[in-house]
Design a protein around this nucleic acid. Structure first.
Length: 438
RNA sequence: UCCGAUGUAGCUCAGUGGUAGAGCAACCGGCUGUUAACCGGUUGGUCGUAGGUUCGAACCCUACCGUCGGAGCCA
């Protein structure tokens, strides 16, 4: 459709109207809500950048134009012209005194009304729900976290080298994978870029991959999605301790940046920002052995050698005022590529980062096994197909070095920063056990 | 896969054996400062599905299906 100007008024984004105070401007957007009386109507307008209230008085515009304002359905698209007026009553500080509107498309029966809705209904209408203020706040914070992570890594000499999504086999062999046809053979959707990262780290030194990963586990909890985004940095010549320092510095930077740049969005979500101020290095370091003792002291029956459940993680995390690294897990419960502690081979040089407030494990990482013979042995012990891992073993054959890395789950981090009940709102179109639509 | 909830109007819910209800949305009308606007009216139902008990079932029983939460697994 053509947008030939009805006037000389400039088209302005709502978040920039303050630069045009007192001037006539054009807004292009959607009607989020309409209230009207006999001689005055209030049009809540949004254009993706913000919200502003347009006010139209019959006495100012006349019968004909005023009539147009009374028959606009919720979420109709329109152009609106009016004078930008500072007003103390307006949430954004400005109102638009309308002189005219042009409805581009009349919407009728918009399903998401100003009243309450259940989550399932809203998820069925996710394509429309994204228009709400709350979803805007969450997804803007998501974007800020992603940008913060990327900026920090790029500024610290990491090279983004993304890894494949279609893979020939399991990276870890333990979890369920989504299978798809790959011409005459099978391919699997990647559950981690980890092993490929080790190859690119040997090529470029410090690398990261940032993209979607897939788990076909039938998990039905507030912390799980079938498709989620993960950032996975990997560093050559990096030991277990340095790896944790990188993680805490990166997270501190991202948290402080979100607090600074997305204060308005955090307010929309009514987030207690004091909880986020605490995301400062150094984080707590708690040996697995001590975590077991801590659980026992709190009355939880837990034997050395087991893995923590969601409830256990919450108890551990709530014992501290900042994120906690739980390190040196039993070798038997961790992946084959983790490096055993040379002084205590029954534990590995790995650490999970537990977020406070019950958000659980947001990072898993550690030092990788760099010894050729031991790696070959562990692949046998885990009954993994040797041919499939030949290239991975090669990395220990040609210039093996100590190296470490980690994977941070984006959606859990977003849920944590935003203070959400469930990760499903942290991604535009969540993929869950019983949801593939829209 | 297991455990526990739950399913009634487009939405959120009430109704626990005797005529199917409310608020909101939609539609019509009224109102000059609303901001989950307000006031009056209209429209709107295979009570998840299939069987059973009963004179009579949204309600009691059985099975199945869907959804939600949790466990396991993980980020």
């Amino acid at each position: 459709m053509g947008f030939e100007s009805m006037s000389k008024a400039p088209w302005v984004r709502i978040d920039k109207v303050g630069e045009h105070s007192g001037e006539i401007v054009e807004i292009r957007g959607w009607l989020s809500r309409l209230r009207s009386s006999g001689k005055i109507s209030f049009l809540q307008l949004r254009d993706g950048s913000g919200n502003i209230q347009g006010v139209m008085a019959k006495a100012d515009v006349g019968e004909e134009i005023f009539a147009k304002s009374k028959s606009v359905g919720q979420e109709s698209s329109l152009r609106a012209w009016g004078k930008v007026n500072p007003d103390e009553r307006a949430p954004g500080g400005y109102e638009l005194h309308l002189t005219d509107i042009e409805v581009l498309h009349h919407a009728e029966g918009y399903p998401i009304t100003p009243k309450e809705h259940g989550t399932d209904f809203l998820m069925d209408h996710r394509h429309l729900w994204l228009r709400s203020n709350r979803q805007h706040a969450i997804l803007k914070i998501r974007a800020e976290i992603m940008k913060g992570i990327i900026d920090w890594l790029d500024d610290h000499d990491f090279l983004r080298v993304d890894t494949p999504i279609l893979t020939p086999s399991a990276c870890e062999g333990t979890t369920t994978l989504f299978e798809t046809d790959y011409f005459e053979s099978k391919a699997y959707l990647a559950q981690s870029g980890q092993l490929y990262n080790e190859a690119t780290a040997m090529a470029f030194g410090k690398v990261y991959t940032f993209g979607p990963t897939f788990r076909a586990e039938k998990s039905k909890t507030r912390r799980h999605l079938m498709e989620f985004w993960m950032v996975e940095p990997e560093m050559a010549f990096c030991d277990f301790e340095e790896n944790m320092r990188v993680q805490e510095q990166m997270l501190e930077y991202v948290a402080q940046r979100v607090l600074e740049k997305r204060a308005r969005e955090l307010k929309v979500l009514e987030r207690d920002t004091a909880k986020l101020e605490n995301i400062k290095a150094p984080f707590v370091r708690l040996a697995y052995d001590d975590a077991v003792k801590l659980l026992n002291e709190k009355g939880v029956e837990f034997a050395w050698g087991g893995d923590f459940g969601g409830g256990d993680e919450t108890i551990i995390a709530e014992s501290f005022d900042r994120p906690v690294f739980v390190h040196r897990f039993p070798t038997a419960i961790k992946a084959f590529y983790m490096k055993p502690d040379p002084e205590r081979p029954e534990v590995v040089l790995g650490a999970d980062l537990l977020a406070p407030e019950g958000y659980g494990e947001v990072i898993g990482g550690g030092q990788r096994l760099d010894d050729l013979a031991l790696l070959e042995q562990r692949i046998k012990d885990h009954h993994l197909p040797e041919e499939a891992y030949a290239w991975y073993v090669d990395l220990r054959r040609y210039g093996s070095v100590p190296h470490s890395g980690f994977g941070l789950g984006l959606e859990r981090t977003v849920a944590w920063f935003c203070g959400l009940e469930h990760v499903r709102e942290t991604i535009p179109f969540p993929r869950m056990l019983s949801r593939l639509y829209p």
